[in-house]
Nucleic acid binder design. Structure first.
Length: 515
RNA sequence: GCUCCUGUGGGCAAACUGGCUAAGCCGCCACUCUUUCAAGGUGGAGAUUGCGGGUUCGAAACCCGUCGGGAGUACCA
Protein backbone atom coordinates (compact mmCIF):
# COMPACT_ATOMS: atom_id res chain seq x y z
CA UNK A 1 0.00 0.00 0.00
CA UNK A 2 2.76 2.40 0.91
CA UNK A 3 5.54 2.13 -1.62
CA UNK A 4 7.86 4.26 0.41
CA UNK A 5 7.68 2.11 3.49
CA UNK A 6 9.94 -0.42 1.85
CA UNK A 7 13.05 1.69 2.04
CA UNK A 8 12.41 2.41 5.68
CA UNK A 9 13.03 -1.15 6.72
CA UNK A 10 15.65 -1.32 9.37
CA UNK A 11 18.31 -3.57 7.97
CA UNK A 12 19.38 -5.07 11.24
CA UNK A 13 15.96 -6.29 12.26
CA UNK A 14 15.03 -8.36 9.27
CA UNK A 15 13.39 -11.59 10.35
CA UNK A 16 12.19 -14.09 7.77
CA UNK A 17 10.87 -17.58 8.05
CA UNK A 18 10.66 -20.73 6.04
CA UNK A 19 7.49 -22.51 7.09
CA UNK A 20 7.00 -25.90 5.48
CA UNK A 21 4.47 -28.44 6.60
CA UNK A 22 5.83 -31.89 7.40
CA UNK A 23 3.47 -33.72 5.09
CA UNK A 24 6.12 -35.53 3.14
CA UNK A 25 9.13 -34.67 1.13
CA UNK A 26 9.86 -31.14 0.33
CA UNK A 27 10.69 -30.56 -3.29
CA UNK A 28 13.13 -28.23 -4.86
CA UNK A 29 10.65 -25.37 -5.01
CA UNK A 30 10.50 -25.39 -1.23
CA UNK A 31 14.26 -25.31 -1.06
CA UNK A 32 14.31 -22.32 -3.34
CA UNK A 33 11.83 -20.53 -1.11
CA UNK A 34 14.04 -21.30 1.86
CA UNK A 35 17.05 -20.10 -0.07
CA UNK A 36 15.56 -16.73 -0.96
CA UNK A 37 14.53 -16.22 2.64
CA UNK A 38 17.98 -17.20 3.80
CA UNK A 39 19.71 -14.91 1.32
CA UNK A 40 17.71 -11.91 2.37
CA UNK A 41 18.39 -12.60 6.02
CA UNK A 42 22.12 -13.13 5.55
CA UNK A 43 22.48 -10.12 3.34
CA UNK A 44 20.83 -7.84 5.86
CA UNK A 45 22.31 -9.37 8.95
CA UNK A 46 18.85 -10.63 9.80
CA UNK A 47 17.44 -13.84 11.19
CA UNK A 48 16.35 -16.92 9.27
CA UNK A 49 13.72 -18.94 11.07
CA UNK A 50 12.42 -22.43 10.47
CA UNK A 51 8.86 -22.99 11.57
CA UNK A 52 7.08 -26.30 11.24
CA UNK A 53 3.46 -25.92 10.19
CA UNK A 54 2.05 -29.18 11.42
CA UNK A 55 -1.52 -28.15 12.07
CA UNK A 56 -2.97 -30.86 9.90
CA UNK A 57 -2.73 -33.93 12.07
CA UNK A 58 -4.22 -36.02 9.31
CA UNK A 59 -1.43 -35.37 6.89
CA UNK A 60 1.46 -35.58 9.28
CA UNK A 61 4.24 -37.79 7.98
CA UNK A 62 6.76 -39.13 10.50
CA UNK A 63 10.27 -38.27 9.50
CA UNK A 64 9.28 -35.39 7.29
CA UNK A 65 10.48 -32.80 9.76
CA UNK A 66 13.86 -34.49 10.06
CA UNK A 67 13.99 -34.62 6.28
CA UNK A 68 13.41 -30.87 6.08
CA UNK A 69 16.13 -30.13 8.60
CA UNK A 70 18.59 -32.40 6.85
CA UNK A 71 17.78 -30.97 3.45
CA UNK A 72 18.33 -27.42 4.67
CA UNK A 73 21.55 -28.49 6.30
CA UNK A 74 22.80 -30.15 3.15
CA UNK A 75 22.12 -27.00 1.18
CA UNK A 76 23.86 -24.86 3.75
CA UNK A 77 20.68 -23.09 4.81
CA UNK A 78 21.05 -23.38 8.54
CA UNK A 79 18.24 -21.73 10.49
CA UNK A 80 19.09 -19.23 13.20
CA UNK A 81 15.94 -20.20 15.04
CA UNK A 82 13.68 -23.19 14.81
CA UNK A 83 12.88 -26.55 16.37
CA UNK A 84 16.22 -27.91 17.42
CA UNK A 85 17.97 -24.70 16.50
CA UNK A 86 17.10 -22.58 19.51
CA UNK A 87 15.57 -19.12 19.48
CA UNK A 88 13.52 -17.00 21.83
CA UNK A 89 10.22 -17.09 20.00
CA UNK A 90 9.43 -20.77 20.31
CA UNK A 91 8.01 -23.21 20.28
CA UNK A 92 8.54 -23.31 16.53
CA UNK A 93 6.24 -26.22 15.91
CA UNK A 94 2.66 -25.05 15.48
CA UNK A 95 1.20 -28.17 17.04
CA UNK A 96 2.84 -27.00 20.25
CA UNK A 97 1.23 -23.58 20.06
CA UNK A 98 -2.40 -24.66 19.97
CA UNK A 99 -3.46 -22.59 22.97
CA UNK A 100 -2.04 -19.43 21.53
CA UNK A 101 -4.12 -19.66 18.38
CA UNK A 102 -7.23 -20.48 20.29
CA UNK A 103 -6.78 -17.43 22.47
CA UNK A 104 -6.61 -15.13 19.45
CA UNK A 105 -9.52 -16.83 17.75
CA UNK A 106 -11.61 -16.23 20.84
CA UNK A 107 -10.43 -12.66 20.96
CA UNK A 108 -11.78 -12.22 17.48
CA UNK A 109 -15.11 -13.70 18.52
CA UNK A 110 -15.23 -11.11 21.31
CA UNK A 111 -14.53 -8.31 18.90
CA UNK A 112 -17.07 -9.59 16.41
CA UNK A 113 -14.56 -10.18 13.64
CA UNK A 114 -15.09 -13.92 13.81
CA UNK A 115 -17.96 -16.24 14.65
CA UNK A 116 -18.75 -19.82 15.55
CA UNK A 117 -20.12 -22.08 12.84
CA UNK A 118 -21.70 -25.49 13.24
CA UNK A 119 -22.15 -26.55 9.66
CA UNK A 120 -20.80 -30.02 9.19
CA UNK A 121 -18.32 -30.80 6.44
CA UNK A 122 -21.02 -33.00 4.92
CA UNK A 123 -23.54 -30.19 4.89
CA UNK A 124 -21.07 -27.87 3.22
CA UNK A 125 -20.14 -30.52 0.73
CA UNK A 126 -23.80 -30.83 -0.15
CA UNK A 127 -23.99 -27.08 -0.69
CA UNK A 128 -21.07 -27.27 -3.08
CA UNK A 129 -22.67 -30.13 -4.92
CA UNK A 130 -25.80 -28.10 -5.40
CA UNK A 131 -23.92 -24.98 -6.39
CA UNK A 132 -20.35 -25.22 -7.66
CA UNK A 133 -19.91 -21.54 -6.93
CA UNK A 134 -20.98 -21.88 -3.32
CA UNK A 135 -18.90 -19.72 -1.04
CA UNK A 136 -19.28 -19.42 2.72
CA UNK A 137 -19.38 -15.65 2.76
CA UNK A 138 -21.35 -12.55 3.53
CA UNK A 139 -24.18 -13.28 1.16
CA UNK A 140 -25.03 -16.71 2.51
CA UNK A 141 -23.77 -16.87 6.07
CA UNK A 142 -27.07 -15.66 7.43
CA UNK A 143 -28.76 -18.70 6.02
CA UNK A 144 -26.31 -21.14 7.55
CA UNK A 145 -25.79 -22.66 10.92
CA UNK A 146 -23.65 -20.33 12.98
CA UNK A 147 -23.61 -17.97 15.93
CA UNK A 148 -24.81 -15.14 13.73
CA UNK A 149 -28.05 -16.93 12.95
CA UNK A 150 -28.46 -19.00 16.10
CA UNK A 151 -27.99 -16.29 18.68
CA UNK A 152 -25.78 -16.37 21.73
CA UNK A 153 -27.94 -18.59 23.92
CA UNK A 154 -28.30 -21.33 21.35
CA UNK A 155 -24.64 -21.05 20.38
CA UNK A 156 -23.55 -21.45 23.98
CA UNK A 157 -25.94 -24.34 24.45
CA UNK A 158 -24.57 -26.16 21.43
CA UNK A 159 -21.00 -25.65 22.46
CA UNK A 160 -21.77 -26.81 25.97
CA UNK A 161 -23.54 -29.82 24.54
CA UNK A 162 -20.39 -30.76 22.74
CA UNK A 163 -21.54 -30.08 19.21
CA UNK A 164 -18.54 -29.73 16.87
CA UNK A 165 -17.83 -26.15 15.88
CA UNK A 166 -15.31 -24.09 14.01
CA UNK A 167 -14.47 -20.42 14.15
CA UNK A 168 -14.73 -18.48 10.93
CA UNK A 169 -13.41 -15.09 9.91
CA UNK A 170 -16.22 -12.60 9.34
CA UNK A 171 -15.33 -10.82 6.13
CA UNK A 172 -16.93 -7.40 5.70
CA UNK A 173 -18.70 -6.47 2.53
CA UNK A 174 -17.73 -3.89 -0.04
CA UNK A 175 -14.16 -3.27 0.87
CA UNK A 176 -11.08 -3.31 -1.28
CA UNK A 177 -7.94 -4.85 0.12
CA UNK A 178 -4.75 -3.31 -1.23
CA UNK A 179 -1.64 -5.37 -1.05
CA UNK A 180 1.77 -4.15 -1.99
CA UNK A 181 3.69 -7.18 -3.09
CA UNK A 182 7.44 -6.64 -3.31
CA UNK A 183 7.62 -8.63 -6.53
CA UNK A 184 4.29 -7.89 -8.16
CA UNK A 185 3.48 -4.41 -7.00
CA UNK A 186 -0.08 -3.42 -6.27
CA UNK A 187 -2.57 -6.28 -5.98
CA UNK A 188 -6.17 -5.64 -5.06
CA UNK A 189 -9.01 -7.83 -3.87
CA UNK A 190 -12.68 -7.13 -3.30
CA UNK A 191 -13.89 -8.51 0.01
CA UNK A 192 -17.12 -9.56 -1.65
CA UNK A 193 -15.12 -12.19 -3.47
CA UNK A 194 -13.65 -13.56 -0.27
CA UNK A 195 -15.09 -16.37 1.78
CA UNK A 196 -15.32 -16.60 5.55
CA UNK A 197 -12.26 -18.74 6.04
CA UNK A 198 -12.19 -21.26 8.86
CA UNK A 199 -9.71 -20.07 11.46
CA UNK A 200 -10.01 -22.73 14.10
CA UNK A 201 -10.92 -26.25 13.09
CA UNK A 202 -13.25 -28.51 15.00
CA UNK A 203 -10.29 -30.48 16.31
CA UNK A 204 -9.06 -27.34 18.02
CA UNK A 205 -6.19 -26.81 15.61
CA UNK A 206 -5.85 -23.55 13.72
CA UNK A 207 -5.86 -23.44 9.95
CA UNK A 208 -2.80 -22.21 8.13
CA UNK A 209 -4.35 -18.78 7.83
CA UNK A 210 -4.72 -18.10 11.52
CA UNK A 211 -1.56 -19.84 12.63
CA UNK A 212 0.57 -18.12 10.06
CA UNK A 213 -0.65 -14.64 11.02
CA UNK A 214 -0.37 -15.21 14.74
CA UNK A 215 3.09 -16.70 14.47
CA UNK A 216 4.43 -14.17 12.02
CA UNK A 217 3.29 -11.46 14.37
CA UNK A 218 4.56 -13.07 17.54
CA UNK A 219 7.82 -14.03 15.93
CA UNK A 220 8.25 -10.49 14.62
CA UNK A 221 8.54 -11.59 11.02
CA UNK A 222 9.31 -8.62 8.75
CA UNK A 223 9.13 -10.25 5.32
CA UNK A 224 6.96 -13.10 4.14
CA UNK A 225 8.60 -14.67 1.12
CA UNK A 226 6.52 -17.58 -0.07
CA UNK A 227 5.18 -19.27 -3.18
CA UNK A 228 2.70 -17.62 -5.49
CA UNK A 229 0.05 -20.15 -4.51
CA UNK A 230 -0.45 -18.02 -1.39
CA UNK A 231 -1.19 -14.82 -3.20
CA UNK A 232 -4.95 -15.38 -3.46
CA UNK A 233 -5.28 -15.88 0.29
CA UNK A 234 -3.15 -12.92 1.20
CA UNK A 235 -6.20 -10.68 1.36
CA UNK A 236 -7.53 -12.90 4.13
CA UNK A 237 -4.25 -12.55 5.90
CA UNK A 238 -4.41 -8.78 5.74
CA UNK A 239 -7.92 -8.96 7.16
CA UNK A 240 -6.61 -11.06 10.02
CA UNK A 241 -3.86 -8.57 10.83
CA UNK A 242 -6.53 -5.93 10.88
CA UNK A 243 -8.88 -7.90 13.06
CA UNK A 244 -6.15 -8.52 15.57
CA UNK A 245 -5.03 -4.90 15.42
CA UNK A 246 -1.63 -5.77 14.09
CA UNK A 247 -1.77 -4.05 10.75
CA UNK A 248 0.84 -1.49 11.73
CA UNK A 249 3.52 -4.14 12.04
CA UNK A 250 2.29 -6.40 9.28
CA UNK A 251 5.19 -8.01 7.38
CA UNK A 252 5.88 -7.19 3.75
CA UNK A 253 4.88 -9.79 1.22
CA UNK A 254 6.81 -11.22 -1.68
CA UNK A 255 5.16 -13.97 -3.70
CA UNK A 256 7.60 -16.05 -5.68
CA UNK A 257 6.89 -17.37 -9.16
CA UNK A 258 6.26 -21.08 -9.28
CA UNK A 259 8.68 -23.65 -10.63
CA UNK A 260 7.06 -25.41 -13.55
CA UNK A 261 7.29 -28.98 -14.82
CA UNK A 262 10.29 -29.84 -17.01
CA UNK A 263 7.89 -30.96 -19.72
CA UNK A 264 4.20 -30.39 -20.16
CA UNK A 265 2.28 -27.76 -18.27
CA UNK A 266 1.62 -26.98 -14.64
CA UNK A 267 3.73 -26.52 -11.58
CA UNK A 268 6.45 -28.93 -10.66
CA UNK A 269 5.14 -31.82 -8.64
CA UNK A 270 6.38 -34.90 -6.86
CA UNK A 271 5.66 -37.22 -9.72
CA UNK A 272 7.67 -35.31 -12.28
CA UNK A 273 10.95 -36.64 -11.00
CA UNK A 274 10.04 -40.30 -11.20
CA UNK A 275 8.36 -39.78 -14.55
CA UNK A 276 11.50 -38.44 -16.15
CA UNK A 277 14.09 -40.21 -14.06
CA UNK A 278 15.50 -36.99 -12.70
CA UNK A 279 15.69 -35.67 -9.16
CA UNK A 280 13.29 -32.93 -8.08
CA UNK A 281 14.02 -33.32 -4.38
CA UNK A 282 17.08 -32.39 -2.38
CA UNK A 283 17.47 -35.78 -0.70
CA UNK A 284 16.22 -39.27 -1.33
CA UNK A 285 13.28 -40.54 0.64
CA UNK A 286 12.23 -44.10 1.29
CA UNK A 287 8.61 -44.98 1.77
CA UNK A 288 6.49 -48.09 2.06
CA UNK A 289 4.58 -46.80 -0.88
CA UNK A 290 6.74 -47.07 -4.01
CA UNK A 291 5.18 -43.95 -5.47
CA UNK A 292 6.43 -41.95 -2.50
CA UNK A 293 9.99 -43.17 -2.77
CA UNK A 294 12.09 -40.55 -4.48
CA UNK A 295 15.67 -39.88 -5.47
CA UNK A 296 17.36 -36.71 -4.33
CA UNK A 297 19.87 -34.41 -5.93
CA UNK A 298 22.35 -35.49 -3.27
CA UNK A 299 22.06 -39.16 -4.08
CA UNK A 300 21.97 -38.49 -7.79
CA UNK A 301 25.44 -37.05 -7.41
CA UNK A 302 24.99 -33.31 -7.21
CA UNK A 303 27.05 -30.98 -5.08
CA UNK A 304 24.91 -28.80 -2.82
CA UNK A 305 26.66 -25.65 -4.00
CA UNK A 306 25.61 -26.44 -7.55
CA UNK A 307 22.02 -27.05 -6.57
CA UNK A 308 21.90 -23.82 -4.65
CA UNK A 309 23.44 -21.89 -7.52
CA UNK A 310 21.02 -23.44 -10.00
CA UNK A 311 18.01 -22.75 -7.82
CA UNK A 312 19.03 -19.19 -7.10
CA UNK A 313 18.99 -18.38 -10.80
CA UNK A 314 15.68 -20.11 -11.41
CA UNK A 315 13.41 -17.13 -10.96
CA UNK A 316 15.98 -14.58 -9.99
CA UNK A 317 18.62 -12.79 -11.99
CA UNK A 318 21.40 -10.56 -10.75
CA UNK A 319 21.13 -8.43 -13.87
CA UNK A 320 24.78 -9.10 -14.70
CA UNK A 321 26.40 -11.80 -16.80
CA UNK A 322 27.70 -13.71 -13.81
CA UNK A 323 26.45 -17.29 -13.57
CA UNK A 324 28.58 -18.90 -10.90
CA UNK A 325 27.78 -17.75 -7.38
CA UNK A 326 28.91 -19.01 -4.03
CA UNK A 327 26.42 -18.66 -1.20
CA UNK A 328 28.26 -15.54 -0.06
CA UNK A 329 28.19 -14.06 -3.55
CA UNK A 330 24.49 -14.83 -3.76
CA UNK A 331 23.63 -13.16 -0.54
CA UNK A 332 25.44 -10.00 -1.49
CA UNK A 333 23.95 -9.89 -4.99
CA UNK A 334 20.44 -10.93 -4.06
CA UNK A 335 17.51 -8.58 -4.17
CA UNK A 336 13.81 -9.25 -4.03
CA UNK A 337 13.12 -6.66 -6.71
CA UNK A 338 15.01 -8.72 -9.27
CA UNK A 339 12.93 -11.83 -8.76
CA UNK A 340 10.92 -12.47 -11.88
CA UNK A 341 7.16 -12.58 -11.96
CA UNK A 342 6.45 -15.49 -14.22
CA UNK A 343 6.88 -19.19 -13.57
CA UNK A 344 10.24 -20.73 -14.40
CA UNK A 345 10.52 -24.10 -16.03
CA UNK A 346 12.70 -26.61 -14.25
CA UNK A 347 15.69 -27.12 -16.56
CA UNK A 348 17.62 -30.24 -15.65
CA UNK A 349 20.23 -29.69 -18.35
CA UNK A 350 21.17 -26.42 -16.76
CA UNK A 351 21.31 -28.05 -13.35
CA UNK A 352 23.76 -30.59 -14.73
CA UNK A 353 25.87 -27.86 -16.26
CA UNK A 354 26.15 -26.13 -12.92
CA UNK A 355 27.14 -29.39 -11.30
CA UNK A 356 29.81 -29.98 -13.87
CA UNK A 357 31.17 -26.49 -13.30
CA UNK A 358 31.35 -27.11 -9.58
CA UNK A 359 32.93 -30.52 -9.94
CA UNK A 360 35.63 -29.13 -12.19
CA UNK A 361 36.32 -26.38 -9.69
CA UNK A 362 36.46 -28.71 -6.70
CA UNK A 363 39.93 -29.74 -5.44
CA UNK A 364 40.85 -33.36 -6.14
CA UNK A 365 41.17 -34.19 -2.47
CA UNK A 366 37.63 -33.01 -1.83
CA UNK A 367 36.32 -34.93 -4.79
CA UNK A 368 38.14 -38.02 -3.61
CA UNK A 369 36.24 -37.92 -0.34
CA UNK A 370 32.95 -37.70 -2.22
CA UNK A 371 33.83 -40.39 -4.72
CA UNK A 372 35.29 -42.85 -2.24
CA UNK A 373 31.95 -44.24 -1.04
CA UNK A 374 30.94 -44.88 -4.61
CA UNK A 375 34.14 -46.73 -5.43
CA UNK A 376 34.02 -48.66 -2.18
CA UNK A 377 30.47 -49.71 -2.90
CA UNK A 378 31.97 -51.56 -5.84
CA UNK A 379 34.41 -53.34 -3.61
CA UNK A 380 37.56 -51.27 -4.02
CA UNK A 381 39.63 -49.46 -1.43
CA UNK A 382 42.05 -47.28 -3.34
CA UNK A 383 44.62 -45.30 -1.42
CA UNK A 384 44.07 -41.58 -1.14
CA UNK A 385 46.76 -40.49 -3.56
CA UNK A 386 45.52 -42.81 -6.27
CA UNK A 387 41.91 -41.72 -5.82
CA UNK A 388 42.83 -38.06 -5.90
CA UNK A 389 44.81 -38.46 -9.08
CA UNK A 390 41.92 -40.41 -10.54
CA UNK A 391 39.53 -37.59 -9.70
CA UNK A 392 41.92 -35.14 -11.29
CA UNK A 393 41.88 -37.10 -14.54
CA UNK A 394 38.13 -37.62 -14.60
CA UNK A 395 36.66 -34.46 -13.18
CA UNK A 396 36.14 -32.60 -16.40
CA UNK A 397 34.53 -35.64 -17.95
CA UNK A 398 31.65 -36.10 -15.53
CA UNK A 399 28.53 -34.16 -14.69
CA UNK A 400 27.39 -36.08 -11.61
CA UNK A 401 29.40 -37.99 -9.03
CA UNK A 402 28.47 -41.58 -9.97
CA UNK A 403 29.92 -40.97 -13.40
CA UNK A 404 33.36 -41.04 -11.86
CA UNK A 405 32.80 -44.75 -11.44
CA UNK A 406 30.71 -45.35 -14.52
CA UNK A 407 33.18 -43.65 -16.82
CA UNK A 408 36.34 -44.64 -15.01
CA UNK A 409 35.75 -48.03 -13.39
CA UNK A 410 38.62 -49.47 -15.42
CA UNK A 411 41.08 -47.68 -13.17
CA UNK A 412 40.01 -50.03 -10.39
CA UNK A 413 39.24 -53.30 -12.11
CA UNK A 414 39.60 -55.16 -15.39
CA UNK A 415 38.16 -53.74 -18.55
CA UNK A 416 34.73 -55.28 -18.98
CA UNK A 417 34.58 -55.19 -22.68
CA UNK A 418 36.71 -53.79 -25.42
CA UNK A 419 35.04 -51.61 -27.96
CA UNK A 420 36.81 -52.85 -31.05
CA UNK A 421 34.92 -50.77 -33.58
CA UNK A 422 37.55 -48.06 -33.47
CA UNK A 423 40.54 -50.28 -34.14
CA UNK A 424 39.14 -53.27 -36.00
CA UNK A 425 40.29 -51.94 -39.35
CA UNK A 426 43.79 -51.15 -38.18
CA UNK A 427 44.66 -54.08 -35.99
CA UNK A 428 46.71 -56.60 -37.93
CA UNK A 429 47.94 -59.84 -36.49
CA UNK A 430 51.23 -59.44 -38.30
CA UNK A 431 51.82 -56.19 -36.43
CA UNK A 432 51.67 -57.88 -33.08
CA UNK A 433 55.48 -58.27 -32.82
CA UNK A 434 55.77 -54.55 -33.33
CA UNK A 435 53.37 -53.82 -30.47
CA UNK A 436 55.20 -56.32 -28.32
CA UNK A 437 58.25 -54.18 -28.92
CA UNK A 438 56.36 -51.17 -27.64
CA UNK A 439 55.38 -53.07 -24.53
CA UNK A 440 59.01 -53.99 -23.99
CA UNK A 441 60.05 -50.39 -24.20
CA UNK A 442 57.38 -49.48 -21.66
CA UNK A 443 58.67 -52.21 -19.40
CA UNK A 444 62.10 -50.70 -19.59
CA UNK A 445 60.96 -47.33 -18.30
CA UNK A 446 62.12 -46.54 -14.82
CA UNK A 447 60.09 -43.49 -13.89
CA UNK A 448 56.68 -44.36 -15.28
CA UNK A 449 55.14 -40.92 -15.78
CA UNK A 450 53.16 -39.47 -18.67
CA UNK A 451 56.05 -37.43 -19.98
CA UNK A 452 58.42 -40.36 -20.19
CA UNK A 453 55.76 -42.57 -21.69
CA UNK A 454 55.11 -40.05 -24.39
CA UNK A 455 58.79 -39.76 -25.22
CA UNK A 456 59.17 -43.52 -25.34
CA UNK A 457 56.16 -43.85 -27.60
CA UNK A 458 57.31 -41.09 -29.92
CA UNK A 459 60.68 -42.74 -30.27
CA UNK A 460 59.07 -46.07 -30.89
CA UNK A 461 56.76 -44.68 -33.56
CA UNK A 462 59.62 -42.98 -35.33
CA UNK A 463 61.68 -46.18 -35.37
CA UNK A 464 58.84 -48.21 -36.75
CA UNK A 465 57.43 -45.60 -39.08
CA UNK A 466 54.13 -45.57 -37.28
CA UNK A 467 51.75 -42.68 -36.85
CA UNK A 468 49.95 -41.79 -33.62
CA UNK A 469 46.74 -42.99 -35.21
CA UNK A 470 48.25 -46.46 -35.61
CA UNK A 471 49.23 -46.75 -32.00
CA UNK A 472 47.28 -44.56 -29.61
CA UNK A 473 43.77 -45.87 -30.30
CA UNK A 474 45.01 -49.43 -29.79
CA UNK A 475 46.60 -48.50 -26.49
CA UNK A 476 43.50 -46.68 -25.39
CA UNK A 477 41.16 -49.53 -26.19
CA UNK A 478 43.51 -52.02 -24.60
CA UNK A 479 43.73 -50.03 -21.38
CA UNK A 480 40.22 -48.65 -21.03
CA UNK A 481 38.06 -50.57 -23.43
CA UNK A 482 36.57 -47.35 -24.73
CA UNK A 483 37.58 -44.47 -26.92
CA UNK A 484 36.48 -42.02 -24.26
CA UNK A 485 38.67 -40.98 -21.39
CA UNK A 486 41.73 -39.13 -20.18
CA UNK A 487 44.93 -38.85 -22.18
CA UNK A 488 46.45 -42.28 -22.79
CA UNK A 489 49.74 -41.58 -21.06
CA UNK A 490 48.01 -40.10 -18.05
CA UNK A 491 46.00 -43.27 -17.76
CA UNK A 492 49.09 -45.45 -17.97
CA UNK A 493 50.96 -43.38 -15.45
CA UNK A 494 48.15 -43.70 -12.97
CA UNK A 495 47.64 -47.39 -13.64
CA UNK A 496 51.36 -47.98 -13.11
CA UNK A 497 53.81 -50.05 -15.02
CA UNK A 498 52.79 -53.50 -13.88
CA UNK A 499 49.10 -53.03 -14.44
CA UNK A 500 49.60 -51.23 -17.74
CA UNK A 501 51.92 -53.86 -19.19
CA UNK A 502 49.75 -56.73 -18.04
CA UNK A 503 46.67 -55.09 -19.40
CA UNK A 504 48.28 -54.37 -22.77
CA UNK A 505 49.49 -57.93 -23.16
CA UNK A 506 46.14 -59.42 -22.34
CA UNK A 507 44.23 -57.00 -24.49
CA UNK A 508 46.47 -57.52 -27.49
CA UNK A 509 45.95 -61.27 -27.18
CA UNK A 510 42.26 -60.59 -27.10
CA UNK A 511 42.50 -58.39 -30.18
CA UNK A 512 44.35 -61.14 -32.04
CA UNK A 513 41.66 -63.64 -31.25
CA UNK A 514 38.70 -61.46 -31.94
CA UNK A 515 39.62 -59.35 -34.90
C1' G B 1 -17.29 -20.87 -13.71
C1' C B 2 -15.31 -17.08 -10.38
C1' U B 3 -10.85 -14.41 -8.25
C1' C B 4 -5.83 -13.28 -8.66
C1' C B 5 -0.99 -13.66 -11.07
C1' U B 6 1.60 -13.96 -15.61
C1' G B 7 3.32 -13.93 -21.22
C1' U B 8 11.05 -11.56 -24.44
C1' G B 9 14.49 -17.25 -29.39
C1' G B 10 13.71 -24.74 -27.31
C1' G B 11 14.84 -23.57 -21.54
C1' C B 12 16.62 -19.59 -17.83
C1' A B 13 16.75 -14.59 -18.58
C1' A B 14 18.91 -8.82 -19.46
C1' A B 15 17.38 -4.29 -21.36
C1' C B 16 16.97 1.02 -14.54
C1' U B 17 12.25 5.88 -15.15
C1' G B 18 10.16 4.45 -23.74
C1' G B 19 15.96 5.76 -27.68
C1' C B 20 21.47 2.77 -31.33
C1' U B 21 21.77 -3.96 -35.50
C1' A B 22 16.75 -7.11 -28.34
C1' A B 23 22.74 -8.83 -23.67
C1' G B 24 24.36 -13.24 -21.40
C1' C B 25 23.88 -18.47 -19.78
C1' C B 26 21.95 -23.64 -20.80
C1' G B 27 20.73 -26.64 -24.95
C1' C B 28 21.54 -27.41 -30.36
C1' C B 29 25.02 -27.18 -34.86
C1' A B 30 29.82 -26.30 -36.88
C1' C B 31 35.01 -25.27 -36.58
C1' U B 32 39.37 -25.39 -33.42
C1' C B 33 42.53 -27.90 -29.87
C1' U B 34 43.46 -33.44 -28.41
C1' U B 35 44.60 -38.36 -33.95
C1' U B 36 39.98 -40.27 -27.84
C1' C B 37 36.17 -38.14 -24.85
C1' A B 38 35.43 -34.03 -22.05
C1' A B 39 36.85 -29.21 -20.84
C1' G B 40 38.46 -24.66 -23.23
C1' G B 41 38.39 -21.25 -27.57
C1' U B 42 35.82 -19.37 -32.02
C1' G B 43 31.61 -19.01 -34.90
C1' G B 44 26.44 -20.24 -36.26
C1' A B 45 21.21 -21.29 -36.38
C1' G B 46 17.15 -19.71 -33.47
C1' A B 47 12.85 -13.53 -31.40
C1' U B 48 8.80 -9.04 -36.44
C1' U B 49 9.45 -9.20 -27.39
C1' G B 50 1.66 -13.97 -27.39
C1' C B 51 -1.64 -11.34 -30.97
C1' G B 52 -4.38 -6.76 -32.77
C1' G B 53 -4.99 -1.76 -32.46
C1' G B 54 -3.48 3.03 -30.36
C1' U B 55 -0.15 7.09 -28.08
C1' U B 56 4.85 8.85 -29.69
C1' C B 57 9.90 11.39 -33.94
C1' G B 58 10.69 6.61 -31.55
C1' A B 59 7.68 1.00 -27.55
C1' A B 60 9.63 -5.20 -25.36
C1' A B 61 8.62 -1.07 -22.14
C1' C B 62 2.72 3.39 -21.84
C1' C B 63 -2.99 2.78 -23.08
C1' C B 64 -7.17 -0.31 -24.98
C1' G B 65 -8.70 -4.93 -26.63
C1' U B 66 -7.82 -10.01 -27.39
C1' C B 67 -5.63 -14.86 -26.86
C1' G B 68 -2.58 -18.17 -24.13
C1' G B 69 -0.20 -20.10 -19.54
C1' G B 70 -0.41 -20.61 -14.19
C1' A B 71 -2.34 -20.49 -9.29
C1' G B 72 -6.32 -20.20 -5.84
C1' U B 73 -11.25 -21.42 -5.06
C1' A B 74 -11.14 -27.33 1.71
C1' C B 75 -12.43 -27.87 9.04
C1' C B 76 -4.62 -28.90 3.25
C1' A B 77 -0.75 -26.25 3.75
Amino acid sequence: MKDTSNSMASAANIRVRFAPSPTGVLHIGGIRTALYNYLLAKQQGGTFILRIEDTDQGRYVPGAEAYIAEALQWCGLIPDEGPGFGGEYGPYRQSERKDIYRRYALEMIEKGTAYYAFDTPEALEAQRQADPNFKYGSTVRLSLSNSLTLGKAETDRRIAAGDPWVIRLKVNENETIHIHDLIRGEVNFQTNELDDKVLLKSDGMPTYHLANIVDDHLMKITHVIRGEEWLPSTAHHVLLYRALNWEETMPRFAHLPLIMKPVGSGKLSKRDGAKLGIPVFPLSWQSDKPEDTVVGFREYGFLPEAVVNFLALLGWSPGTEQEIFSMEALSSAFSIEKISKSGARFDFDKAKWFNQQYIMATPNATLARLVRPIVEAHGHKPDAAFLEAFCGLMKERVTVLPEFWENGYYFFEEVRNHDLSGIAKKWKKENRPVFDGLIRSFSAIGYFDAETLKTATDTFMAQNELKPGDVLPALRIALAGTMKGPAVFDMMALLGKTASVTRLNQAFDHFDQTI
